[in-house]
Simulated scan of single mutants.
Amino acid sequence: MSRITLQNIRKSYDRGPTVLHGVSMDIAPGEFIVIVGPSGCGKSTLLRLIAGLETCREGDIILGGKRSNDIAPQDRDIAMIFQNYALYPHMTVRENIAFGLELRGMPKRERNARAEEVARTLQLEPYLDRKPAALSGGQRQRVAMGRAIARETSTFLMDEPLSNLDNALRVVMRREIKELHKTLKATIIYVTHDQTEALSLADRIAVMKDGHLQQFDTPEAIYDRPANRFVASFIGAPEMNFLEAAELKSAGVPSDLTIGLRSDALTLVGAKPAGTALPASVTLSEMTGSDVVLHCETPAGRVTLTAHRSALPADLDDCWIACDMKAAHFFDSKTGARREFAVQEG
């Protein structure tokens, strides 16, 4: 395993707009890094730069202590897993897994033995003689992973590998990828637009927006201490509620701050509580099982929160939202940057 360092990476295409703006990251050997952000933020481009499939305009890509900007993709100790699987339809699972080893000149007996070993790890042994058309989406994804694992590389790059799967299968594959990381102890850099995947998989998350790295930290730090309003809104479901300080006068917050309140900092009650609260009426509810997501109209605008079905007030047209201001986040209303502020309620 080797350390991956990105130093001030900038990228643009054919004199067009800049796609990446000075991105820097230091990735330790064996880390599971998730790069997350909306479409067009530059996350896949960054992955392709690390793989050597693209060249950067400025900056250095350092792999294992060696500047690697000009090293060909096949000469980097890296395997890449794509969204579309890229399996050969005329080959069996065994042949697909072993194909990269065949290109490297490994004898047939050795590469088949390696393919079978990888298949055991990924629970693909029963399917070794099947072709991709006879496999489910999850099985095809595991074959694509197996082909990368067979190379015995130290670094895996995964570009939205689960986006073609249904929700139930995504949950299963997330668990399998997490377990695989523990088994291989390899470095994984994983790109997704799904914040749930980011939170559940990563040792550290890199949040991107418009080619800029917004925050690079642990899932806990990004959820609990988002660097700015964008990170706060992108990470977490339901999305964080944002209210201007003037809309919550009782909180005693300076007017140049925007208040961020996650769903778990809000409680729907039937009567006006002590402390900071908003009168509300529920306009829409979405059952998720034992809990329900509630969309409420308040004098401060629409507020979304989650409540247990058994704890709902009797009258949802005339209720209150109690705000736990000790759990609030504060952002500069002009710049969106995080600001520290201690609320003194009462």
Rank of each mutant, 00 (worst) to 15 (best):
L47W: 08
N167W: 02
S24I: 05
M91F: 14
I4T: 12
L316T: 13
Q195S: 11
G22D: 14
K249T: 09
E247A: 15
P219L: 09
V34F: 03
H329L: 12
K178P: 02
D166I: 00
T5H: 00
S68K: 01
E220S: 13
P132R: 04
A314N: 06
L124K: 04
S250K: 12
H308P: 02
Y223E: 01
A246G: 02
N96E: 08
I27K: 04
F156S: 03
I9K: 08
L312R: 01
E179F: 00
K131E: 13
M106C: 03
S12N: 09
K182T: 05
S255H: 13
R130N: 07
V93L: 06
S285T: 15
I35H: 02
F99I: 03
R262I: 03
H212Y: 14
I9C: 10
T153Q: 01
P73Q: 03
I177E: 10
A322M: 00
F234A: 04
L199I: 09
I188V: 13
E160R: 03
N167I: 14
A168G: 03
L284P: 05
S290G: 07
D291A: 09
D291N: 14
P161N: 11
R94E: 15
M240Q: 01
A119R: 10
F82C: 07
R302E: 14
